[in-house]
């Protein structure tokens, strides 16, 4: 798959900033994670390229995004609305990654998990792209995991 760091960054920014109107600032992925629950949305791509796209955000950021999408106050957002939004963000990002592929591929429906002390592992994959952004005081990450050789 021909995807440069710049392609990936533009894609992520077009989803989060272009469509949702959030101002994003690139940041680093290391450091202490924000305390509290996180939501992780994942979609899988299979076909000419095999891998996964993962969107991870703190619960408070997911709540802000859901509030913006639903036109609610953050405190009025229901958990299933955050699940919906995080899944949709993974879906949109995954669809744009898939658009860069040559050859046929299919995109799975998103899965979303919530928790405080866990990580998502997709067996047989390795990390090929990772970006972190700061937005409204929270850090979220977007990662591409590939089953194909580097």
């Amino acid at each position: 798959m021909e995807m440069t760091d710049l392609d990936f960054a533009e894609m992520v920014e077009s989803v989060f900033s272009g469509m949702l109107g959030f101002e994003l600032v690139r940041t680093h992925t290391e450091g202490e994670p924000e305390p509290g629950d996180r939501f992780i949305g994942t979609v899988h791509i299979s076909g000419s390229w095999e891998g996964s796209v993962v969107v991870e955000c703190p619960e408070k950021f997911g709540r802000l995004v859901a509030a913006a999408m639903f036109g609610n106050e953050p405190d009025a957002v229901e958990d299933d609305e955050i699940v919906d939004v995080v899944g949709e963000l993974a879906n949109m990002t995954g669809g744009n990654v898939k658009a860069l592929l040559e050859g046929e591929a299919t995109l799975s429906l998103p899965t979303v998990v919530r928790g405080a002390d866990f990580r998502v592992i997709v067996p047989g994959t390795h990390l090929t792209r990772s970006l972190a952004y700061e937005c409204s005081g929270h850090v979220f990450q977007v990662r591409v995991l590939s089953k194909n050789p580097s």
Partner: peptide
Amino acid sequence: VTSESQPSYKDRAIEAGALFLISKPFN
């Protein structure tokens, strides 16, 4: 209105009689 944007999807959509295919993200 979909995350799909590959040409083969657009072709299948048009063949089935769809008027257009808007890819996400959109404005």
